Simulated scan of single mutants.
Amino acid sequence: MARRLVRAALAVWALNELAEDGVLVATELVSNAVRHARRASVRVVVERTAQGTVRIAVADLSCTQPVACLPGLNEDEGRGLLLVAALATRWGSDERRWGKIVWAELEARR
């Protein structure tokens, strides 16, 4: 569902060039939220913050803030936020009294 939401929003805004990166970012953010917040339910928001800029955000009920780490060569997990950081112009998280929102911004080439 999150992937379809991202693709649909980007198509409406004529930002199809961001679709592949946007889908990958959404997948990683949702996966992290489900895995670490231990909840099957998360909220995904896609918003256009400027002409060529999109913010993909995932809200969950965990207050634990995300931390990008460098996994060992033989580890199968732990690269998601590094991937998000590589694809996004910027990313971060905002604390809420009920949990957090982790977001990433993507910008179209001009």
Rank of each mutant, 00 (worst) to 15 (best):
A2L: 05
A2E: 11
A2S: 15
R3Y: 05
L5G: 03
L5D: 02
L5T: 11
L5W: 05
V6Y: 03
V6P: 04
R7W: 09
A9M: 11
L10H: 01
V12Q: 14
V12D: 15
A14G: 11
A14D: 15
L15N: 01
L15P: 03
N16M: 10
L18C: 05
E20L: 11
E20A: 15
D21Y: 02
V23R: 05
V23E: 14
V23T: 07
V23L: 06
V23W: 01
L24D: 07
L24R: 12
L24M: 12
V25I: 13
T27M: 07
E28K: 10
E28L: 07
L29E: 01
L29C: 00
N32F: 08
V34K: 07
R35F: 04
H36F: 07
H36K: 00
A37W: 01
R39V: 10
A40T: 10
S41H: 12
V42M: 03
V42Y: 04
R43F: 07
V45P: 00
V45G: 04
R48M: 00
R48V: 03
R48S: 02
G52I: 02
G52M: 03
T53A: 12
T53C: 14
T53K: 13
V54C: 06
V54E: 03
I56M: 04
A57W: 05
V58L: 04
A59E: 13
A59L: 07
D60H: 00
S62R: 04
T64Y: 07
T64E: 13
T64H: 10
Q65A: 15
Q65W: 08
P66K: 01
L70V: 13
P71I: 00
G72P: 03
G72L: 14
G72D: 12
L73E: 15
L73C: 06
G78A: 09
L81W: 03
L81I: 03
A85Y: 02
A85G: 07
A86S: 10
A86M: 02
L87V: 07
A88R: 04
T89Y: 03
R90Y: 06
W91V: 04
G92A: 04
S93A: 15
S93K: 02
D94F: 06
E95H: 11
R96T: 15
R97M: 09
W98Q: 14
I101W: 06
V102Q: 11
V102P: 08
W103E: 06
A104T: 00
E107D: 14
A108R: 15
R109W: 09
R109E: 13
R110D: 09
